[in-house]
């Protein structure tokens, strides 16, 4: 599996390259900023792009912008965004704009090597992987219409769905029978009004997109307008 790596920080880059090469990945290109990353991707057309969010020159969201550009031009390339911190908004943006082959993971997860490599492969195969911390970010906060009516167990199932777990994996994780997981999932779909699809990555995407929608009546843009009017 061919990978282009976007990471400006030498220590981390070295560690990642070592890790990936040892696991049988082939790091075909490395980039330390947005332009380089897009350029290397264009040149190598890898299976996967792994990138940090912050890169020179401003150390802001250069990696995010590069990821968006890559996904827009080559939707078939999997993109994993690595970050030291989980941000709800980043997940929302990534999932809103790109249907498949997207991942958003904390850098901390790298040390959980097996899981990390599995997540990379999932994304390279077109699935969606969202860090558990990000999922919990999406599910905390004020109670919202979307998750009202869910039991605690159903919420946990939903969280694992959002992380891309299969029904079997959820069953293992929660020590349930796969049959009762299927039961929970269809209940969740009923309550959330989501269309049941067999496709694992589609269902993650649907769930996450649903959860990340603005929590207050009407979309975000509407609240902008109301407030703008009220405040003159």
């Amino acid at each position: 599996m061919r990978v282009v790596l976007g990471e400006d920080e030498a220590l981390m880059r070295h560690g990642l390259v070592l890790l990936l090469e040892r696991a049988g990945f082939s790091v075909v290109g490395m980039a330390a900023n947005e332009e380089e990353l897009v350029g290397e991707t264009e040149h190598h057309r890898p299976d996967l792009v792994v990138t940090d969010i912050r890169m020179p020159p401003d150390h802001r969201d250069e990696g995010l912008r590069a990821a968006a550009r890559v996904k827009a031009r080559w939707p078939e390339i999997g993109v994993v965004v690595l970050s030291h911190h989980a941000q709800r908004g980043v997940a929302v943006d990534l999932l809103r704009d790109h249907a498949t082959g997207i991942g958003y993971l904390l850098k901390q997860r790298v040390a959980d090597v097996d899981q990390f490599l599995a997540d990379l492969r999932s994304v390279a195969h077109g699935r969606t992987v969202i860090d558990p911390d990000v999922v919990s970010l999406l599910m905390t906060g004020a109670p919202r219409a979307a998750t009202e009516g869910l039991t605690d167990r159903q919420e946990r199932v939903l969280g694992l769905m959002a992380r891309g777990y299969s029904n079997a994996a959820i069953a293992r994780e929660l020590s349930l029978s796969e049959k009762s997981v299927v039961h929970h999932v269809s209940h969740i779909y009923d309550i959330l009004g989501l269309e049941l699809t067999p496709d694992a990555h589609r269902r993650v995407q649907a769930v996450v997109r649903h959860l990340s929608a603005d929590r207050w009546p009407g979309p975000l843009a509407t609240s902008h307008r109301i407030d703008a009017d009220r405040h003159g």
Binding site: E9, L11, M12, G15, K107, A111, D112, V113
Partner: peptide, 8 residues
Amino acid sequence: SRLVLLGV
């Protein structure tokens, strides 16, 4: 980064 790599 060092902590993560030590974890690796």
